[in-house]
Write a protein that binds this DNA or RNA. Structure first.
Lengths: 115, 115
DNA sequence: TCATCATATGAATAGTTGTTCATATGTTCA
DNA sequence: TGAACATATGAACAACTATTCATATGATGA
């Protein structure tokens, strides 16, 4: 921690009063953590087109069924995808328009910095 | 992988042709990875108000100077914050409007699901 | 130049996370 | 009921990451 010379007690108090409450910030970090894995990102991207079964996702991305299933569970828990069961199959789709929007925003940042 | 019975070669081909290229998706995941840590999220949130020195951020969030410095480096590398040096101090600020927008989107999702 | 201070960084460690293998669950159809 | 299949899940392992401590760097003022 820094020495006493610099008194930022005022700015500390001020900034803290304007901060989003900490529990929300933790939830937010947890949400982005879900986006922060390439396998999950790829799964979400595949689901942009249409709902897909688990084994179809595995085929598209060249992943093991088990891997896809584990990641879909995480996406489900974060309410980013939803399931529809039909016989033996489970069809997954995006649960929320925010997914697309968050995706788009990230994409703007990435592609802008590629210039 | 699933058996041959279900032929999704058509949908596989179709979806793959529409997918964002894989390198971009990896970059995207890396970007969200940076957002996916509560310390970094809190730092960014503090920087919404105004630019801040390293030790001021540490004070505000109750973190060690070293921790803040390490995380700021990661944020800098992802072009999410920028530095302005003034004497012994380094003042950090948000580098990009996308930061706010990505933040807002995440927040909508989180608060919506809290209802 | 030397002491002090703000920041940056390297190394070590502890905790977390993604993938894999093996297996369980639950559905369909003969 | 039992075989075949799609999916889900538990356990184990490997890889990654955040924090801490110690120290380096670089600036200021005496």
């Amino acid at each position: 921690m820094c020495a006493e010379h610099i008194d930022h007690s005022e700015i500390v108090k001020n900034t803290n009063s304007k901060m989003i409450d900490i529990d929300t910030l933790f939830e937010l970090a947890d949400l982005f953590k879900v986006f922060g894995d390439s396998t999950r990102i790829r799964i979400m991207c595949a689901l942009f087109e249409s709902e897909l079964s688990v084994c179809c996702i595995a085929d598209i991305l060249g992943l093991e069924q088990s891997t896809v299933s584990h990641q879909l569970r995480i996406l489900r828990q974060s309410k980013l995808v939803k399931v529809r069961k039909e016989g033996k199959q489970s069809f997954y789709s995006l649960d929320d328009d925010h997914v697309r929007q968050i995706f788009e925003m990230g994409l703007s940042h990435v592609t802008e910095n590629d210039k």
